[in-house]
C-alpha cells in the first residue's frame, strides 16, 4: 500500500477529512450529520494516514492514546447531561445560550457538547481498533 503517490497524498487527504468531519459534526444539529458520522469520518482519516505512513506516526500525531480520547468523549457526554441539574430540569435536557460574537449570534447548547462527546468516543474507539489492525498487518 505504501506507494510514493499514496504517501504523498495521504497527509492532505487526512487533514481535509478531519476538517470535513468537524463540518459534519457542527452541521448535525438540524441537518444530516452529527457526532457519530463525523467521528467515523475522522477515524477513517486517521486510518488512511496509518495505512500510508505507518501506525507510529499516527500515534505520535494524535498525542493521546485513542482509548483516552474515547474516555474523554464519554466524560464530556456525561457532563453535558448532568449540567441540567443546575437549572432544575431532568437529566439530558438541552440547554441553550445565545452569545453574540462579532455581531453574529451563536447558538450554543449542551446538546452540542454531548455531540462532540459522541464524536470523540467514535473517533477514539474506531481509531484504536483500526490502528491495532494495521499494526498486526506489518508483523
Amino acid at each position: 500500500m505504501r506507494t510514493l503517490i499514496f504517501r504523498t497524498v495521504a497527509p492532505y487527504f487526512t487533514s481535509l477529512m478531519l476538517i470535513y468531519s468537524v463540518f459534519v459534526l457542527l452541521r448535525g444539529h438540524n441537518e444530516p450529520g452529527g457526532g457519530f458520522i463525523g467521528g467515523l469520518i475522522a477515524a477513517s482519516a486517521l486510518a488512511i494516514y496509518g495505512v500510508a505512513c505507518g501506525v507510529s506516526p499516527v500515534r505520535r500525531a494524535i498525542r493521546f492514546h485513542p482509548m483516552a480520547i474515547a474516555g474523554f468523549g464519554l466524560f464530556m457526554a456525561a457532563i453535558a447531561g448532568v449540567m441540567s441539574i443546575f437549572v432544575d430540569v431532568p437529566f439530558l435536557t438541552g440547554l441553550w445560550i445565545y452569545p453574540k460574537v462579532f455581531g453574529v449570534e451563536l447558538k450554543l447548547s449542551t446538546t452540542l457538547i454531548f455531540d462532540i462527546g459522541v464524536y470523540l468516543v467514535v473517533l477514539g474507539s474506531i481509531t484504536s481498533t483500526a490502528l491495532a489492525l494495521e499494526e498486526r498487518e506489518r508483523d
Binding site: M67, A68, A70, G71, F72, G73, L74, F75, A77, A78, I79, V82
Partner: peptide
C-alpha cells in the same frame, strides 16, 4: 459512566 471515562 463518569468514573469509567476517567479510568479510561
Amino acid at each position: 459512566f463518569i468514573f469509567g471515562a476517567i479510568c479510561l
